[in-house]
Design a protein around this nucleic acid. Structure first.
Length: 293
RNA sequence: GGUUCCUUGGCCGAGUGGUUAGGUACCGGUCUGCAAAACCGUUUACUCCAGUUCGAAUCUGGAAGGAACCU
């Protein structure tokens, strides 16, 4: 029985090391499930596995995209499912390691089939939102898909816009495409969640931010500053440094903001994972020593 | 020592005699195609004591702490 071992948990808890330990022991390769480590220009601020770490175990989906390339959880699902058979030829195990909740779920449960949105439709909906405001797109969605409108957060323009796009692209209400069904996978999945008591986790996060800054994150951010409008750079760490470069935030504030926003992100991850009762929670020590039954 | 002024929740900050500003932090939550995104919610108060008043954070007196200036 082929097995996918999922290693997840809040940012900064030490997933990378643990995944490498387990992978070496099982002669497995690692699939990164991190929506930002995908981008090759920003390894420092995303704490991507280093060259040395990647030399120990083969990693996939790290530094494979340019910042201007579109990517999504659904694309990740497709790409990973295409890659997995070759990994399972070499080993009984593969490791999926990362903290992007939606990416993990896309692999473990699948994402509903939805047509790819054309640029014209996407831009037109965004324009409508910019010009006419949230009420206007809410009314539009209510007309196109009253069922989804009834359950969606009316303050969240991203969700509203996305739903309208889908309705327009598909020609049917978004609701009809939302099955909510979990797909079956042709391999076993074991989910390990790594966590620490919050004070310890937060201390690790704070220390890691200091280290990133010492290790050249500012230079890294400067080199991508001209691309700051891209979604891939709407990311904790870069947002704050860009504000510092712009002169709208002083350096100390930016640094503390990065720490705070990283802590907030970690909490958000924990909130998401709390609903997933398939996760076996372990401390970093327990996880490093973990072996499958 | 004297004169004047100040004292609001972790922090910033508005305020009228009785209908509990707001921001930020913290904490909690939502989530099926940009998710390290986007969005939502709760809690914490009027320095202390006495008085006036039906009722005071808001008025009066005193205490404590702080600020500026003067000798």
């Amino acid at each position: 029985m082929k097995t996918l071992i999922v290693i997840t948990g809040p940012t900064g808890v030490g997933k990378t090391d643990i995944a490498i330990n387990i992978a070496k022991r099982l002669s497995a390769e690692i699939i990164s499930a991190d929506s930002r480590q995908l981008y090759r220009e920003i390894p420092i601020g995303t704490a991507a596995p280093t060259v040395e770490e990647q030399a120990k175990v083969c990693h996939h989906f790290v530094g494979t995209l340019n910042l201007d390339q579109y990517y999504s959880a659904a694309q990740f699902e497709t790409d990973v499912l295409k890659l997995l058979p070759s990994l399972f030829e070499k080993s009984d195990y593969a490791i999926l390691c990362g903290g992007s909740m939606l990416y993990i779920d896309a692999i473990c449960r699948g994402i509903d089939e939805i047509p790819t949105i054309s640029d014209e439709i996407r831009n037109s909906v965004i324009e409508k939102y910019k010009n006419e405001g949230i009420e206007s797109i809410c009314a539009e969605l209510q007309r196109l898909d009253p069922d989804y409108y009834a359950i969606v957060d009316h303050s969240n323009h991203k969700r509203i816009i996305h739903a309208i796009e889908i309705c327009q692209q598909a020609g049917v209400p978004y609701t009809t495409l939302r099955t909510g069904k979990h797909k079956q996978r042709p391999f076993r999945i074991i989910k390990l969640g790594i966590n620490l008591p919050r004070p310890q986790l937060f201390e690790r996060i704070n220390n890691r931010v200091e280290k990133m800054l010492e290790n050249g994150m500012i230079e890294e951010a400067k080199q991508v500053y001209h691309l700051r409008h891209l979604n891939a750079l709407n990311t904790v760490g870069y947002k704050e440094l860009f504000a510092y470069f712009d002169g709208t935030m002083d350096y100390t504030t930016a640094k503390e903001r990065i720490k705070k926003n990283t802590r907030v992100y970690a909490k958000k991850q924990l909130t998401w994972y709390a609903k997933d009762n398939e996760i076996a929670w372990l401390t970093p020590q327990e996880a490093s020593a973990w072996t499958p039954l």
